[in-house]
Design a protein around this nucleic acid. Structure first.
Ligand code: ZN
Ligand code: ZN
Ligand code: ZN
Ligand code: ZN
Lengths: 145, 145
DNA sequence: TTGTTATTGATAATATTTTTCAATAAGCCA
DNA sequence: TGGCTTATTGAAAAATATTATCAATAACAA
């Protein structure tokens, strides 16, 4: 089921701004924040209010259609996310992000956390940072640090 | 080496505001944001500027003395962190956080990410959410959801 | 104790996020 | 298809959060 169907079935309307915003995020291969989305849409001639961007992101996020991405410096952007258990790895240089399937490998870690802290583990946030293939090449050429 | 020694050796002064702020964060067992720190200190009669809180947190964070904690809803707070490879588990109800030792268990996951995405993995963000022992008891009593 | 200078705090300037409400348009139904 | 109902949008303003500036202060070395 695609996000449009999902949105409809959840009782929300498939408005033009919502379509534009989701399409932009799908095109972009890096996390975008509200201001960036607003600016990028204006640049391509789509004139919509910043407030709508905030509202749309909030809705999409609450429905689990997009996920928050935390850059190493704490900034946050949004990216469309596949259904299921996924995480992102983000390039530290160009910020391009790729989704990967979450594994069940953390079961033993979760087990250890429970015995050490006595917390009941219910959820987790996992993101990796590194260099995408293109930026690895740049690094080898000495073009970046 | 404690944080005060570390700060001195790094060439920074051990000012009163810095001591107050770190002490507060050490006392609190949950992540605090700049505004909360400012408010809490005022409540206990310590009158210092909000700007200093921002600056101090920025300094501590850049030195790795504190770490950012992302609540499930994206909010961020700061917590003092031990030296070495650690992560936090945060209670979804009372927000109390506990540090645990990072394991090397993720090596195979990192390996898999590399072969799937061709990204070079260099860092990661890992946080768990759950229920602390106290809130587990509350849950069993039906006092919380 | 004194001098040097990093650090603070007050104020102002920016930036970000939320609220409000009339105007608009999405989707339903005839 | 064309109108009706109401979710959704956009503009403006309000509220919050963050950063910049600079004279006054205090940490710390000598
Ligand atoms: Zn890259
Ligand atoms: Zn996972
Ligand atoms: Zn708790
Ligand atoms: Zn780790």
């Amino acid at each position: 089921m695609d996000w449009q169907t999902f949105l409809s079935k959840a009782g929300y309307r498939l408005s033009e701004p919502r379509k534009r915003i989701m399409k932009l995020m799908e095109m972009a291969d890096k996390p975008l924040n509200p201001l960036a989305i607003h600016r990028l849409l204006r640049e391509q001639g789509v004139h919509l209010g910043l407030v709508s961007v905030y509202r749309t992101l909030e809705l999409f996020f609450s429905l689990g259609l997009i996920s928050q991405v935390f850059q190493p410096d704490g900034l946050v952007g949004y990216l469309p996310v596949s259904f299921g258990h996924h995480h992102f790895i983000v390039c530290q240089n160009c910020h391009k992000a790729v989704e990967f399937l979450g594994s069940e490998d953390m079961q033993e870690l979760i087990q250890r956390i429970h015995s050490e802290t006595h917390y009941q583990v219910r959820d987790h946030l996992l993101q990796f940072y590194g260099l995408c293939p293109e930026c690895q090449a740049l690094l080898e050429n000495g073009d970046i640090n």
